[in-house]
């Protein structure tokens, strides 16, 4: 992949889009890449993308807006098509739920939602309970070096099982927090709410090492 033509977008229907934009732009600038992030709301915008970030937010809202006919704009099919053609995807929290193969809810057992089904992982939504149980904790992530990564978990899901092709980046007795499968990257926490750019750097690396 040539550095000069790289284009990364963020699915900008709902959630913390700006936080991802600021961080990814900083990473691009730091690597000397002259490219700005695109806010993606329409299918045709996906055509030029090498990578798509699906931000944190409410996964039910995003899944309705990308896949349901009454909201008119069928982004889901287009995202799936672009991933088949090699577009990289980075999902955080709600984004991780959206790219998973299957999701359940911790409280509401008969809950179901439309997913993009890109990554061979299963998640449980709201695994830790409600907002008052949201938390921060440092995570050890070998792939990113010795310095612990500041984990910010907000009404976070957890990854319960992964397929054979999925590389686990962070896990402990509590569950799986970060995974990578080919050109897909997912975290159940929010790197974009911290000052640590290592996950965004990893995502850029995944795009560049094509």
């Amino acid at each position: 992949m040539s550095k000069s033509t790289i284009q990364i977008g963020i699915l900008a229907l709902q959630g913390d889009v700006l936080e991802h934009e600021l961080m990814m732009n900083a990473v691009l600038a730091n690597k000397g890449i002259d490219s700005k992030i695109l806010w993606v709301r329409r299918p045709e915008q996906l055509d030029s993308l090498d990578g798509l970030i699906i931000p944190g937010g409410e996964s039910t809202v995003m899944s309705r807006l990308v896949s349901e006919m009454r909201f008119g704009h069928k982004l889901a099919a287009k995202i799936q098509e672009r991933v088949q053609k090699g577009m990289a995807v980075f999902g955080t929290c709600a984004g991780a739920i959206l790219i998973s193969k299957a999701s359940k809810d911790q409280v509401v057992k008969d809950f179901s939602q439309a997913l993009l089904e890109l990554m061979d992982i299963e998640v449980i939504r709201n695994r830790y309970g409600r907002q008052r149980d949201s938390f921060e904790r440092p995570l050890t992530i070998e792939r990113l070096g010795n310095e612990p990564f500041p984990g910010v978990f907000i009404r976070a899901p957890i990854i319960t099982s992964v397929g054979k092709k999925v590389e686990i980046l962070a896990k402990d007795a509590g569950g799986i927090y970060a995974v990578k499968q080919g050109k897909l990257l997912a975290t159940t926490f929010h790197p974009e709410l911290t000052d640590d750019t290592r996950f965004h750097e990893l995502f850029l690396e995944m795009i560049l090492n094509d």
Binding site: A12, G57, R137, A173
Partner: peptide, 23 residues
């Protein structure tokens, strides 16, 4: 517990609000 979770921080409280943006 073993996980040393810190709850109720500004990052977590204001971060919650940030997740509702555009909604």
């Amino acid at each position: 517990d073993a996980f040393e979770r810190i709850r109720g921080t500004n990052r977590v409280k204001r971060g919650f609000a940030r997740m509702t943006k555009g909604g």
